[in-house]
Computed example of a mutant assay.
Amino acid sequence: MPTILRWGPYRAFFYSNEGNEPPHIHVRSADFEAKFWLHDLSVAANASVAANAGFPAHEIVAIVRHLRSHRDFLESKWHEHFGN
C-alpha cells in the first residue's frame, strides 16, 4: 500500500492488489476513505468517486480539486507501480 501523496490530513495511496482495475487512487483521513478514478478527475467531482466511506460532499469536492492538480503525477505513479 504505497503512499503517493500527502497533504493536510490526507494520504493518497494505492492498494497493491488492484492493478487489474483502471487507474485510481485511494484517499484516507482519520476513519474516512474514498476511491477516485484518475481518468474521471477532469469531469464533475461525483463522476470520479468510485467509493466513499464517510467523507462529506464538500470535502470530496476539495479532495477531487487537489487530486486533479496532481493527476499526471498520480497516473505516472500508478503505471510505474503496476507496470501497465
Score class of each variant (00 low, 15 high):
P2L: 04
P2A: 02
T3I: 15
T3V: 15
I4M: 15
I4N: 12
L5C: 13
R6M: 09
G8P: 02
P9D: 12
P9Q: 07
Y10C: 06
R11P: 00
R11A: 02
F13E: 12
F14C: 06
Y15L: 01
Y15R: 14
S16M: 09
S16C: 01
S16F: 02
N17F: 06
N17V: 01
N17L: 07
G19S: 00
N20V: 05
N20K: 11
E21C: 11
P22N: 11
P22L: 09
P23M: 07
H24Y: 03
H26P: 07
V27I: 15
S29T: 02
D31Y: 06
F32C: 14
F32G: 08
F32V: 00
F32M: 10
E33D: 14
E33F: 01
A34Q: 05
A34R: 13
K35L: 07
K35R: 08
W37P: 04
W37S: 14
W37L: 09
L38N: 08
L38G: 02
D40Y: 11
D40G: 00
D40E: 05
D40A: 14
L41P: 04
L41M: 08
L41Y: 04
V43W: 12
V43Q: 10
A44M: 11
A44L: 05
A45M: 04
A45W: 11
A45F: 01
N46F: 04
S48Q: 01
S48I: 04
V49E: 06
V49K: 12
A50R: 15
A50V: 06
A51H: 03
A51P: 00
N52R: 07
N52L: 06
A53P: 00
A53F: 15
G54N: 07
P56H: 08
A57Y: 06
E59D: 05
E59F: 09
I60M: 11
V61G: 01
I63G: 04
I63T: 02
V64K: 03
V64C: 12
V64Q: 03
R65A: 10
R65H: 12
H66Q: 09
H66T: 09
H66Y: 13
H66M: 08
L67W: 10
L67E: 05
R68M: 07
S69D: 15
S69A: 13
H70W: 08
H70D: 04
H70Y: 03
R71G: 00
D72R: 00
D72L: 01
D72N: 05
L74R: 13
E75L: 02
E75M: 11
S76L: 13
K77D: 03
W78Q: 08
H79N: 11
H79F: 14
E80R: 15
E80I: 07
H81K: 09
H81Q: 11
F82M: 00
N84L: 01
N84K: 08
N84T: 02
